[in-house]
């Protein structure tokens, strides 16, 4: 059974069909790429999976759960985390606080069922030992992730003042700290230089190998896509035009045409 299974997905905005009958199966432990020219519907697909958009038609299953039963804020509980094409960091917060927000569901000073939320609130209000303990644990966890990504030392800086490449990594750290099963990255290499792109490729492989996280990556940089992914889906104007192993997709005439067509514009 696939980790993520999409059947016949259609997403329309008024008259525009952003995704047109897409089928997809992603096996656990793989790195999959989703490629296609701008406006193909790739980011829209992420928004469908994470329930930000209500799909027009089709079925979405994650770990055998019907995703359509969940609200956007519940998706994380299933083990799905994501990044955004245009960074969506909490700009007025420090790096550390960004990583603490990501532990929102884990930070529970009082775990009593039912009234735990309210009791936790009072524990926070008076900074009781129960609050101090979980806050400290959460900070340790955040520092651990920063260490993993080689970002130690910037935890108390506001994210808005950091360079673009660093912010991309922080968004990745913020997704990782939720300990997802499945991670969706929307153009993680955009705006990075060649050296950073190489490092990113290595990092993504480590995330899969060492943390066992299944990856779905939207990416335009073909050498990165070819070097990390085991399977590729190609979208063009919302339509799935090809899928397969990198070597298969690379030589597919429909794919070449879609990309050449784009270059002529």
């Amino acid at each position: 059974m696939a980790l993520l299974e999409i059947k016949d997905l259609v997403m329309r905005f008024g008259g525009l069909t952003a995704i047109d009958h897409l089928n997809m199966k992603i096996e656990e432990g793989t790195i999959v790429a989703l490629i296609g020219p701008n406006g193909a519907g790739k980011s829209t697909f992420f928004n469908c999976v994470t329930r930000i958009y209500e799909v027009t038609n089709g079925e979405l299953y994650f770990n055998n759960e019907d995703l359509r039963k969940y609200d956007p804020h519940e998706i994380i509980k299933l083990g799905i985390a994501r990044s955004f094409q245009n960074l969506e960091l909490f700009d007025n917060l420090t790096v550390l606080n960004n990583l603490l927000v990501a532990q929102h569901l884990k930070i529970k000073p009082v775990k009593t069922p039912g009234v735990g939320g309210i009791l936790s609130f009072f524990s926070d209000m008076f900074l009781l030992p129960s609050t101090k303990k979980v806050e400290k644990e959460a900070v340790m966890e955040a520092l651990k992730i920063l260490d993993l990504l080689g970002l130690r030392g910037i935890e108390n800086l506001l994210v808005s003042i950091l360079p673009y490449g660093t912010r991309k990594l922080i968004e990745l750290a913020r997704a990782l700290i939720t300990k997802p099963k499945f991670l969706m990255l929307d153009e993680p290499a955009a705006g990075l230089n060649e050296k950073e792109k190489k490092e990113l490729g290595i990092l993504l492989k480590r995330i899969r190998d060492e943390l066992g996280i299944t990856l779905l990556v939207i990416e335009h940089d073909m050498s990165l896509v070819m070097s990390i992914s085991e399977y590729i889906y190609v979208l063009s104007f919302g339509k799935p035009i090809a899928e397969g192993k990198p070597s298969e997709v690379q030589n597919n005439p429909a794919v070449i045409e879609a990309y050449l067509g784009k270059e002529e514009e």
Binding site: T50, I52, P72, H73, E74, I75, I76, K77, A81, R82, F84, E88, L89, F90, D91, N92, L93, N97, V101, A102, H104, L105, R174, T178
Partner: peptide, 15 residues
């Protein structure tokens, strides 16, 4: 603060 700075990111993190 999270929902002020980015509603969509806040939701994705379980808020």
């Amino acid at each position: 603060a999270a929902l002020r700075d980015s509603e969509v990111a806040a939701r994705m993190l379980g808020v």
